[in-house]
Amino acid sequence: MPEQLLFAAEVTLNGLMAGVLYALVALGFVLIYKASGIFNYAQGVMALFAALTLVGIMEGQVPFAHLINVIFGTEIHHFGWEVPALLAIFLTVIVMIIFAWLVNHFVMRHLINQEPIILFMATIGLAYFLEGVGDLMWGSDIKRLEVGLPQGINEFIDEKTFEALGYGFFIDNLDIVATIIAVILVAGLVIFSQYTTQGRALRAVADDHQAALSVGISLNFIWVLVWSIAGFVALVAGMMWGAKSGVQFSLSLIALKALPVLLIGGFTSIPGAIIGGLIIGVGEKLFEFSIGPLIGGATENWFAYVLALVFLCIRPQGLFGDKIIERV
């Protein structure tokens, strides 16, 4: 096989893997948009907050330690214990459920029947609030995430492709794990929404709030549920991205990668988020590989948004999004 073709195949595979990571972020947006029509600007910050909380719990960090020390003149930073990863993940999920309840209780339920732009603005406020609280609670330093996720080149794939093709492909072990987790997550979400009572209720709310209310579905409960699931998805995304870069403020910027994915896949489709992620991942990597060197490189962010723009022009609702029909 010609060398350039091998390289292109390697780039495509890595693009697919990167796409899965983008899709993980996009999933959180889709869940909340589907259930409530809210574009949750805070989804990226939720990933940051969840990852910060996970590391903080694992390391036995005292939340708000700096604030406590300043107010009371104490010198406390750690509880002196470490929490195993699985238990810490479980505790973080509980924190995200509490967060979901707080968001619904103090923000969202007061905004029922408001214009979507009002709800969107509320999530912008929520994002800034959460950024500040995250910093205050766990500090601004970069934290290493040690939950046992494997990283580095997959030896097996490297060896086998070298034997077969004369060129060893690079696939990151972390990307493989992320793909497996994404598949499980999507399967779980599909099963939940199709085969459980709560899932059906969630779909009913997504279809029509008022009709769902009229048959006795609690909107408050559904919103807490969906924000909790989005919090869990944010935790998974935060863990995957945090393993690559350490847990730090920049994790909140991963939302930037989710926007073109949503525009392509549609805001209301879970499979759309996955397909959109894969299209963006492969597209941007192949473009950077083939055209990038001719125009100075660093084309990935640019390409993702240009591709999304093209899709918007051709199919505004995205590949799998619901077609918007407004009667006048």
């Binding site: 390289f7 390697e10 780039v11 890595n14 693009g15 990167a18 990571l21 690079f170 990151d172 991205w241 690559k244 870069s245 920049s250 910027l253 991963i254 930037l256 990668k257 941007e284 990597k285 950077e288 590989f289 990038g292 100075g296 490189g297 660093a298 990935e300 962010n301 640019w302």
Partner: peptide, 21 residues
Amino acid sequence: STLPIDFPGQEQKSQWLKIRR
């Protein structure tokens, strides 16, 4: 030669695959 990375730089797979090649 140069290899630019766009802000914020959380995804650098393209650049490092090129370096590997």
